[in-house]
Each structure stands twice: as C-alpha cells, then as structure tokens.
Design a protein around this nucleic acid. Structure first.
Lengths: 197, 197
DNA sequence: ACCTGAACACCGTTCAAGT
DNA sequence: ACCTGAACACCGTTCAAGT
C-alpha cells in the first residue's frame, strides 16, 4: 500500500474519519484544515466531493441517524411490547449519552435543508426508519392490550418527545447525568400510569 | 444628546442590542464586527466589558432566562392547579416558538461553564426561578388532590422534559410547527391519564 | 477609565494550474 | 477525473497607543 496521488475513496474516507473525530474532538476543532491535515490531503480536497463543509457534515449526520436506527433495531426484537418500548427508550438514551456530539449534530436545525432535500416529503423526521420502529412497538402494544387504543403516531411522538427531552437536557448540562437512568424509569412509569388522580 | 467618546453604558447596550439582534439575525451573522459596527464603536470595544464574545453571549442567555421566567410568572397566577400547570407548559412553548434562537442559545451546552460559575451549587438548572414556579404548581396540584402524591421535583422534571422535548424537536424542524399545539394537548392529557391500560 | 487601529493567527472557499 | 497552492474575504482577539 503506497501513498498515491489519487486517494481512491476519499469521499467515504472523509465522512468516516469525520464521524470518528466527532467522538473525540469538540465541534469547534473540526475545521476543514484539521480534517484534511489528518488525512494528508490538501485543504481544498473536500470540494471535489462536497459542495461545502456543511454538506460534508450533513453526510456525517446521516451516518449517525443510521447508527441510531441500528441501535434501536437491535433491541426491537424484544417480544413483550411494553418491555420493547421501554428498551427502545433506553437504547435511545444510551446512544445520546455515549455519542452526545453526534446526537447534538443530528438534532441541529442547521441540516434542515439537507433533511428536506434528502427525502421527497418529509417536513418532519418521523418518516425515518428509526421512528417507524417506535410506531410499530406502539401498535404491537395496543394489539396486546398494554397500551390504550389511540393514534399510534401520536403515542410514538409523545414517547419520542419525552425521551428526547431527557436526553437533550442531560447532555447539555441542565440535568445531572447520573440521574438520567432513574429519571427515565420515573417518566416511563408516570406516562404509563398517569400523573393525575 | 451627542455622540461622545465615552459611550456611557456600553456594557448594557451591548447586551441589550445583541439580545434584540438574536431575534432578527441568524446566529452566524452575529459577529463581533456586526454588533460593534451597528453600535458605532470599535471592533475591540467589547473587551473592556467582557473577557470574550462567549461571555457577552452568556449575558444575553441570562437575560433570556429572565424573560422566560417572567413569562411563566405571568401565567402562574391561575388558581386551578392543573390549569396552572397546563398554562405554564403553554407559555413555555410560546416562548420557544416566538424566540427560537434565544431558546436554542439558552439550552446550548456552550454556556455550561457560565451557568456553573454563575451560581454556587447548580449542577443542574432546576435551581433557577423558572423551575421553582413549576415545582410550586405541582405541589399545589398535589395539595388540591389533582396530582398523585409523588416527589414534586420528579414530577416537575418530567413535565419540563416533555415540554422541552416538544419545543426542541419543533423549532429544530423535526416536527411540523403547526401541529405543536395539538401535540401539547395530546401529551398533557396522556401524561395525566396515563397511556397504559 | 475607556476606546481605537493596526496586527496576528485563524477560518471556509475560489480558481487557475498541475498530474 | 482528481488534487494542489496561492489567494481572498472573513473571523475573534491582542496590544501599544491615543483621549
């Protein structure tokens, strides 16, 4: 293997390397120069493959969404429908806690234009595969008589908002990290049983 | 009133002007040059009053938290405790929807160091005045027999996470803006009555 | 005490030129 | 087709100097 003039697969290498760097480096360090220096290519090499730094980052965001979907799919095999829903929320929170910079990137409104350009009719992200998994779990729980028979999309959205709320407030330092697990258990129970009496 | 060499109250003018500009300009336009040019002072004038651009922004964030607290305090006069809780969530969502850039700034983990430096023992933001209003509403609802007698802090945190989840996903384009109101009604009802059966 | 102007080390991006 | 190197218009911040 020799260092050649043509890199071979620079596009995928750029996305993959940046994806890894997001783990270890704060966002403000991730300049075009930092990335290209690490790869040993010129500063302007990215513009052969992406129209802008923003477009490159949005490819990384897409990869992160795929990783989240894979993590959710892994725990979606659970048979008991309420347990499955519980496990999906847990896996979601684990992802956010282990990859906080990826998670922030995914949720950032900066990539709105890329999200909307990427698919045909997705004003909201709920069309994505990860969200389908949650809707399916709600439908299954309804069929099993564990969940009230309401609109499954609304139920899944409620669940997402709750879990995202916990994740987001925690990784941005508004809630103590070590209490996240216990908070999730409390909220899951509350939303199941109801807070009113 | 003449344009003098000494500005008089440049510090407060910087914070106030920037606070207003956050409304009308995207964050990436809000450079030190943009702000100082608008005020007719030199580019480096901010460093007399703040150690960095970041510190200036964190003062704007503090002002935004004060504004949110004021908005919540306004609806906290409602007597019926469950209605009061409902109104608090609604006012919170209104704030996020009307001032999305302020809201993102407030939640950004970039100011963590300033949040922690600002007060003596606040690893989490729940010590703040805005959150106290929500806890009080939970306690009042418990006393009135409208809410289950559980830890009020946990209940208030649950409520915050839910409302922040809706706000955050909506203003960052993951959920359609026009459905936010209806989603809040659904979630409020669900968390009250419970989703399981 | 408060503000300025030149300078510095960065940044993303362009474009003509090289292979 | 793919990559480079010099250049451009930005950015936050420092610092000696002015009032």
């Amino acid at each position: 293997m020799k260092k050649s003039y043509h890199h071979g697969d620079l596009k995928q290498t750029l996305v993959g390397t940046l994806y890894e760097l997001v783990n270890s480096e704060p966002l403000e360090h991730l300049t075009v120069r930092f990335l290209t220096d690490r790869l040993g290519v010129s500063r302007t090499a990215i513009y052969r493959h992406f129209p802008s730094k923003e477009a490159l980052f949005s490819a990384v965001v897409q990869k992160a969404f795929d990783a989240l979907e894979a993590a959710l799919a892994e725990v979606a095999v659970e048979q008991d429908p309420l347990q499955r829903l519980h496990g999906l929320g847990g896996a979601y929170l684990d992802f956010a806690l282990h990859y906080p910079r990826h998670y922030r990137l995914m949720m950032n409104d900066q990539w709105r234009v890329y999200r909307e350009h990427g698919c045909s009719d997705c004003e909201d992200k709920r069309k994505g595969g990860a969200f389908e998994i949650v809707i399916d779990a709600c439908r299954a729980a309804q069929a099993a008589g564990a969940l009230r028979e309401e609109d499954a999309l609304t139920q899944a959205t409620a669940f997402w908002a709750m879990v995202h709320g916990i994740a987001s407030l925690t990784i941005d330092g508004h809630l103590p990290e070590e209490e996240m697990g216990a908070l999730y258990e409390s909220l899951f129970r509350m939303s199941c049983e109801g807070m009113c009496r």
